[in-house]
Computed example of a mutant assay.
Amino acid sequence: MNLALFDFDGTITSRETFGAFIRFAAPRRRRVLGAPFFAPLVAGYRLGLLSGSEIRARVVHFGFRGLHADELGRAGQRFAEEILPATVRPTALARIRWHRSQGDKVLVVSGALDVYLSPWCKQHGLDLICSRLHVEKGLLSGRFLGSQCVNAEKSRRVRELCVPEHFPIIYAYGDTKEDLDMLAMAHRKFYRWQEIT
């Protein structure tokens, strides 16, 4: 049995889903009030002045703090059913199916949120490592539970779940610099669906 590690946003999907989920699930009033505040931050990210992790942390705090976790969970389920299918690359699903047909262990390792990734992965019979939201007394605190699952955290969590040395071949698929640590673990690395050495 080999190990196959797949990033989600931009690898399994054709576009970013984190922002789409914020627009789908955050209360309308917060979206309207937050748009002018977050526009300069997004520009800073595109210019390389802010990290994606910083922006995601601020967006989660602004968009979700104080909401009922159950409500967000229901929104995540709907998002997984109604929005994600149109974003998933057929070639990615075909590659996942190929790995499963070989008997490989397939892990989705993503900085995206568990509230919508969990139902999607469950539907496809895939194991999941991802970013999770912190909940206190049934309400979202506006923080992540632990670290966001990006950069070195991806490879750390993979090692926490399984022993890489037990797999003859490790495959890894990613599309941004946040995936590079995970790709470094692999014998066969695919960056934006091109194999690299």
Score class of each variant (00 low, 15 high):
149 C>Q: 05
163 V>E: 15
125 G>Y: 03
59 V>W: 05
170 I>C: 03
12 I>N: 00
134 H>L: 13
168 P>D: 09
168 P>S: 12
138 G>Y: 06
50 L>A: 05
23 R>Y: 12
122 K>G: 11
154 K>M: 11
130 C>N: 03
169 I>S: 04
100 R>L: 15
100 R>E: 13
1 M>R: 03
131 S>W: 12
27 P>A: 03
111 G>N: 14
165 E>S: 10
173 Y>N: 02
110 S>G: 11
138 G>S: 07
82 E>G: 07
110 S>H: 08
76 G>H: 03
39 A>V: 11
155 S>D: 14
87 T>R: 07
83 I>A: 08
114 D>N: 12
79 F>C: 09
53 S>Y: 07
197 T>P: 09
150 V>T: 13
85 P>G: 07
183 L>D: 12
36 P>W: 02
44 G>I: 04
77 Q>V: 13
70 D>G: 07
134 H>W: 08
196 I>E: 15
10 G>F: 02
37 F>W: 11
110 S>K: 05
186 A>S: 07
90 P>Y: 01
129 I>R: 04
108 V>N: 00
47 L>R: 15
56 R>L: 09
93 L>T: 02
116 Y>S: 03
164 P>Q: 00
92 A>H: 00
24 F>V: 10
58 R>Y: 06
181 D>S: 13
72 L>M: 06
47 L>D: 12
39 A>E: 09
169 I>P: 03
116 Y>L: 06
134 H>F: 08
177 K>S: 15
86 A>L: 06
150 V>K: 10
5 L>P: 00
118 S>Q: 13
150 V>Q: 12
61 H>Q: 14
95 R>W: 00
105 K>H: 14
91 T>E: 15
45 Y>S: 10
1 M>W: 02
68 H>A: 14
89 R>K: 01
70 D>Y: 09
154 K>C: 11
56 R>I: 06
47 L>I: 07
109 V>Q: 08
93 L>N: 01
195 E>K: 03
39 A>D: 05
143 R>D: 14
184 A>Q: 13
25 A>L: 09
104 D>E: 04
48 G>E: 09
184 A>E: 15
49 L>N: 06
145 L>A: 13
103 G>P: 08
42 V>P: 06
7 D>H: 01
28 R>P: 11
151 N>Y: 14
151 N>A: 15
168 P>V: 04
23 R>V: 05
192 R>V: 08
164 P>C: 01
8 F>Q: 01
180 L>I: 11
74 R>V: 12
75 A>N: 09
163 V>P: 06
134 H>C: 13
136 E>N: 13
167 F>Y: 15
147 S>P: 10
69 A>L: 06
71 E>Y: 07
63 G>Q: 08
3 L>E: 02
48 G>D: 12
161 L>Y: 00
35 A>R: 08
38 F>N: 05
173 Y>E: 00
4 A>C: 01
169 I>M: 07
71 E>W: 07
70 D>R: 11
51 S>T: 15
92 A>D: 01
10 G>V: 08
178 E>H: 14
16 E>T: 09
48 G>H: 09
114 D>L: 09
103 G>Y: 06
